[in-house]
Write a protein that binds this DNA or RNA. Structure first.
Lengths: 232, 232
DNA sequence: CGACCATTTGACATCTATCAACGCTGGTGG
DNA sequence: CCACCAGCGTTGATAGATGTCAAATGGTCG
């Protein structure tokens, strides 16, 4: 069930380096430093639907995403999932590995994924060697903390349709106007049930903000300006 | 209205050092390092109700709390506040200052507060000088992120009474069985209205989990074991 | 002592979760 | 290659929890 399906993969160093250069966290480093770190990574492939890591397990690895989409979520005792973010190429996974010894959410591949993997102890090593990374990672974490706090404000203060609008805006700002996401996942991202999410989407279709394409697992934003202006 | 009322204060170095030794983030440092940092701080007093900093302002300072309680919250466009945590002596405020250039929540004194203040640039200076601090701060931030994510899970999945139970448990674990907190603040911490919070508290009184003291701005946990066993 | 604000309780409105049913689609196995 | 079916997407009806509005009580502070 909750099984991790991965396969190691030979990826040329040049491509690994490109991935690091695309990463917010690492691009501030010198080419030499990037090569130093990149050459220590192992490329791993995850099939769509497989797990990169699971909430509660020992945090062994740190990842940089080369390609693909990954959803980060937490399950609750009542069976409902809550999705916190969708990570894409250039993003790091599990920056918290530095400090917390267990993963505190689950990472699952939405599409096929290629990621570069670094062992926890190697990450520590490089952190000492290149202290700037620490500041970058803190920046990332502070941003994430801000986002989650903002989300709590919205969940407690806004109604369903507004929350869907906010969610769509956040997601499309990062991932573009074509969202590869199921209704259920958008619901989990917004903290609402699937049915209520669909009802809100129907209204947004009527308003012309999202397309009426009925393709499964996809939502298309057709009026980005209007969406932004409605976002709070 | 949103005015910062503070007064500088002469505090002996020895007391400043004690504050640092009580701090999760700094106690791992050598006595020399602690003295080094502590001697750069300025002690500041805040009267009950006054603001240490305000959401959206330029993040100029980093604080270590010497004494008193501070609530951290965010306001929403609809007028509702959301409270994220209550900081006490030994806690750091605005660790995110390192990375984000504006405060992203408001800090307000619940009681009279004495805090040690460090300029942003000094914090950077010490971070380079004593790199271990960075890891400690990241640890703290990862913990905060985990807490907020957990909170989102609870808000979306649990009912009001359960959320009050969780909130009371979290708060009393940190602050002890006597909570200096108004009903409204507990409501803001739990993401519920004051009225619903009070109704939940009434039930908990009947169950003997909290005391029936009607003192204003105070909630007393009378059965900590039971509270813990009910927490999810 | 009086004004103000926190706390409490009640009545009511409403949003959203829940349960149910059905069309459709994409993937799978024969 | 086609038929089948599990699961997604959609809509409707209903119940229930919580927000909202209102009002009374009681504690605190000047």
């Amino acid at each position: 069930m909750a099984e991790i399906v991965e396969a190691k993969l030979n990826l040329p160093l040049s491509r690994k380096i490109t991935a690091f250069q695309n990463s917010e966290v690492f691009k501030i480093l010198s080419p030499n430093a990037i090569e130093d770190i990149a050459s220590r990574t192992i490329a791993v492939r995850f099939k769509k639907g497989s797990f990169i890591f699971i909430d509660g397990e020992k945090a062994a690895f740190f990842y940089i995403i080369d390609s693909g989409l990954i959803k980060l979520y937490k399950g609750s005792s009542t069976g409902k999932n809550v999705m916190f973010s969708i990570a894409k190429d250039g993003d790091t996974l599990n920056a918290s590995a530095l400090s917390v010894d267990r993963y505190f959410m689950t990472a699952q591949a939405i599409t096929d994924v290629i990621a570069l993997r670094l062992e926890r102890k190697d990450l520590f090593h490089f952190l000492n060697k290149y202290p700037n990374i620490a500041v970058q990672i803190m920046k990332k974490m502070a941003g994430r903390l801000d986002e989650e706090c903002q989300k709590i404000v919205h969940i407690t203060g806004e109604e369903a349709e507004q929350r869907i609008i906010n969610s769509l805006y956040r997601l499309s700002s990062k991932l573009g106007p074509i969202l590869t996401i199921r209704r259920k996942e958008l619901a989990e991202f917004s903290g609402i049930t699937t049915e209520t999410t669909i009802r809100a989407l129907s209204k947004l279709k009527k308003k012309g903000i999202i397309g009426s394409s009925s393709k499964r697992g996809e939502i298309i934003i057709s009026d980005m300006e209007e969406l932004q202006s409605l976002t709070v």
